[in-house]
C-alpha cells in the first residue's frame, strides 16, 4: 500500500496556506472596526431589526469589508512586500498566492452584497457594493499610488459602514447617517497622517505618495491641524440630532478639545525635536485618534439606551429636526 501522505509531504508550496492566513487576508483588525461602527449604525437607527437579521447584517457588512481587504492585498502585494509594516501579510510573505486573494476577495464581495440584500434591503446592499468598489478600485488601484490626497478621498470607504448599518435598519439615508459618515471621513486624514509622520520611511521606500513623502512633514502637520479643526464641528453637531444627546455632547466636547490640542502640539513641533524623542507626540496623537473614534461611537450607542433617553428628558435636551 502506498503512503500517499508521505508522497505529498514534500510538495508543500505557496498554495498551502493555513486557515489563519485566509483570515489575515480579510484584515481582521479593520473588520473589527467595521463591525463596531456598523453595529452602532444599526443600534442607533430608529427602526429595530429582528436580532437574527441584525446579526446577519453585521456579518455580511464585515464580510464585505474583509473582501475589499483581500482585493487590496492582491493588488498591493508589490508595495506590501517593501513596507516593514505590511511585509508579513499573507500574499507578500508567500503564504497565499495572489490569485487566491483575488478569488477570495471577488467571491466574498458578491456573496456579502447578495446576502445583505436578502437579509435587509437593496439600498444597504448597493451601498455595501459601492463601499467595496470604492476601497478596492477607487482607493487601492487608483488614488493610493497617484495622489497625496489618497487618504482623504479613500477615507470614504472606511466611513460607509455605519451608514450601511443605518440603512440596513431604516431603508433610507438620513442626516444622522451622513453625520456618522462624515465623522469617520474627516477623522481619517489626521489619523493616517499622524501614522505617516512616524512611518514615513516605509511609504517612501514603497513610493506611495503620502503627504509626508510628497509635501514633507511640515505640510503634513499643517494638514493635520486643518482637518482636526474641520472635524470638531462635524462631531459636535451630531449631538443635536436624534442619535446624540447630553452624554454624547460631553464626551465629544472633551475628545475634540484633546484632539485639537494634540493637533496644535504637532503643528508647533519642529522636526529636530520630533526626531529627538522618536516621534513620541505623534505616536500619542495616533493613539488618541483611535480612542477618539471608538469613544464617539460608543457614546452614540450609549445614547440609544433607555437610560440616556431618561437623562435627555430630565435635562430637557431636544434633538433638532433637520429635515
Amino acid at each position: 500500500m502506498t503512503d500517499i501522505r508521505a508522497d505529498i509531504a514534500d510538495q508543500s508550496g505557496p498554495g498551502d496556506a493555513g486557515f489563519g492566513d485566509y483570515v489575515q487576508l480579510l484584515k481582521p483588525r479593520v473588520m473589527s472596526l467595521v463591525v463596531f461602527t456598523a453595529l452602532v449604525g444599526l443600534v442607533v437607527a430608529p427602526v429595530r431589526l429582528h436580532p437574527v437579521e441584525a446579526l446577519a447584517a453585521i456579518i455580511f457588512i464585515a464580510l464585505g469589508a474583509g473582501a475589499s481587504g483581500a482585493l487590496n492585498m492582491w493588488w498591493d502585494a508589490d508595495i506590501d512586500r517593501v513596507m516593514r509594516r505590511t511585509a508579513k501579510r499573507p500574499v507578500p510573505s508567500g503564504a497565499v498566492e495572489p490569485g487566491e486573494a483575488l478569488g477570495l476577495g471577488a467571491t466574498l464581495s458578491v456573496l456579502s452584497v447578495v446576502m445583505l440584500w436578502l437579509a435587509t434591503n437593496a439600498l444597504a446592499a448597493a451601498l455595501l457594493a459601492f463601499t467595496i468598489f470604492f476601497y478596492a478600485v477607487i482607493y487601492t488601484m487608483w488614488l493610493k499610488r497617484s495622489t497625496p490626497q489618497n487618504i482623504v478621498i479613500g477615507g470614504a470607504a472606511g466611513a460607509f459602514p455605519p451608514m450601511v448599518g443605518w440603512v440596513a435598519a431604516t431603508g433610507s439615508v438620513s442626516v444622522e447617517a451622513v453625520l456618522m459618515f462624515l465623522l469617520i471621513f474627516m477623522w481619517t486624514p489626521p489619523h493616517f497622517w499622524a501614522l505617516a509622520l512616524f512611518m514615513n520611511s516605509d511609504y517612501e521606500k514603497a513610493k506611495v505618495p503620502m503627504l509626508t513623502v510628497t509635501h514633507g512633514r511640515r505640510s503634513t502637520r499643517n494638514h493635520i491641524l486643518v482637518y482636526t479643526l474641520l472635524l470638531a464641528p462635524v462631531a459636535l453637531v451630531a449631538a443635536f440630532t436624534s442619535i446624540g444627546g447630553p452624554i454624547y455632547f460631553a464626551v465629544s466636547l472633551v475628545l475634540n478639545l484633546l484632539f485639537v490640542i494634540g493637533a496644535f502640539r504637532l503643528w508647533m513641533r519642529r522636526e529636530e525635536r520630533a526626531e529627538a524623542d522618536k516621534y513620541a507626540a505623534e505616536k500619542r496623537f495616533f493613539a488618541l485618534s483611535l480612542a477618539y473614534l471608538f469613544l464617539h461611537f460608543a457614546a452614540f450607542a450609549v445614547e440609544a439606551t433607555p437610560w440616556a433617553d431618561a437623562l435627555s428628558a430630565y435635562a430637557g435636551w431636544e434633538a433638532v429636526t433637520w429635515l
Binding site: D3, R5, A6, A9, S12, D16, A17, G18, F19, Y22
Partner: peptide
Amino acid sequence: ALTREHDLHKRRQGRNIGVL
C-alpha cells in the same frame, strides 16, 4: 507510526476544519 506526519497535513487539516 505507519504514516509520516508533515506540517502540511496539520495545516490542511486546520484549513478543512475551518472551512467546515
